[in-house]
Design a binder for these strands. Structure first.
Lengths: 204, 204
DNA sequence: ATAAACAGTCCGTCTGGACGGTCTTTTTTA
DNA sequence: TAAAAAAGACCGTCCAGACGGACTGTTTAT
């Protein structure tokens, strides 16, 4: 027994709250994400919520980190499964596509835009996003060596991908047609990812 | 004479409300955009606000159209001042940059993301954005003939620009360094806009 | 036993919206 | 043309509900 059940329960409640917060962000949007909804969704009382997170912003900040960690972990494992050469680019594009339209990304977007006019939230958001950016950069460099290094061009390429993903996620809000998003991503991949394998690659 | 003062006053009040709504969206964000703040900012009573716009969503919907119209008008006039050939691409990039970080674009972003979880707002948003998209496409085609036509490639190019602009605007929320945004835009322009001279694409 | 983890209630504030009243134009009428 | 009537634009207050969060009580593990 020792101290298992206590710790376990504490973590379960906390995780439920964080998951509920993320779900609420994704399904209801930032403006409608209230403590009441989060507590209901998590199946937890008000006292429990305030016990774990002293204020609303504290909950959201924790949710940010939660999101960032899961995003990083997910992208990392999926990147290891990338096919060696043949179809590598297409698989990477598919992964981008998937992450982009996933709940983690959407919740991030909500918080990101909300952080524009909320200084505290912005400051809390920065470190997580920095780490995510660095991780993504590392993974990209690893998968596509010609984008590695700290030179200006690879940085810009990397940054353009992130901007593109965010923009596409935003565009898809008012659009039902998904094919154009794939085409845009493939256009980017053709221009940035494809050109310099420096040696072999099967392309036209 | 006859019915001038009335009309004038009505329009002034209405315009003040719409401008205040946009300003509020830009400075306070969607979640903090309340009727109280809008009415205070516009220097107008609560009764007047509700007289002009029967509900909050009605006000925001009108603000959307307001934004869209001003965006379109502004982009159109600026596009006509584009230099003929030399420096045309750079001037266009500057214009994109300017519009992207302007208040109109930001207010649009706020409403756009809010529309993700608000069906009524989304439906109100669609026609204005469609028109904006069409106008931008026309202007782009006019300025860069090799992007004209309804073929798939030019559509995708055009769409990728919009996504990029939206994504960059979002990225700039957490970033103070503006140079990377310009570099990303120039990267896009070099890949998409530059191969202009003849009607056949060139690669180097 | 005692402290952590949780539950439930309560409070002050603010929200969007309803409402009746006031003042200023416009239209009608004589 | 001038007075009376109607219409329109605007004002300020009020309200029910929802918000964030503080509070006190109850359970549970150690």
């Amino acid at each position: 027994m020792s101290e298992r059940p206590r710790q376990q329960r504490w973590e379960r409640t906390r995780a439920a709250l964080l998951d509920a917060a993320v779900t609420c962000l994704v399904e209801d949007g930032y403006a409608e994400t209230t403590l009441q909804r989060v507590q209901t969704r998590a199946g937890v009382s008000r006292g429990a919520l305030l016990h774990h997170f002293g204020s609303k912003s504290e909950l959201l900040v924790a949710a940010v980190r939660h999101i960032a960690e899961r995003q990083i972990a997910y992208v990392r494992t999926r990147f290891h499964d990338l096919p060696p050469v043949e179809g590598r680019v297409d698989a990477a594009v598919d992964l981008f596509r998937e992450v982009m339209s996933g709940p983690l990304f959407l919740a991030g977007l909500e918080l990101w835009l909300a952080a524009r006019t909320d200084e505290a939230l912005r400051q809390a958001l920065v470190p997580g996003e920095r780490e995510l950016g660095r991780t993504l950069h590392d993974l990209l460099s690893q998968a596509f060596p010609h984008l590695s290094g700290t030179d200006r061009q690879s940085t810009v390429s990397h940054e353009s991908l992130l901007a593109l993903l965010r923009g596409l996620a935003l565009s898809s809000v008012l659009r039902t047609d998904r094919t154009i998003e794939d085409e845009v991503l493939h256009l980017w991949a053709d221009q940035i990812l494809r050109p310099v394998p420096s040696s072999l690659e099967t392309s036209r």
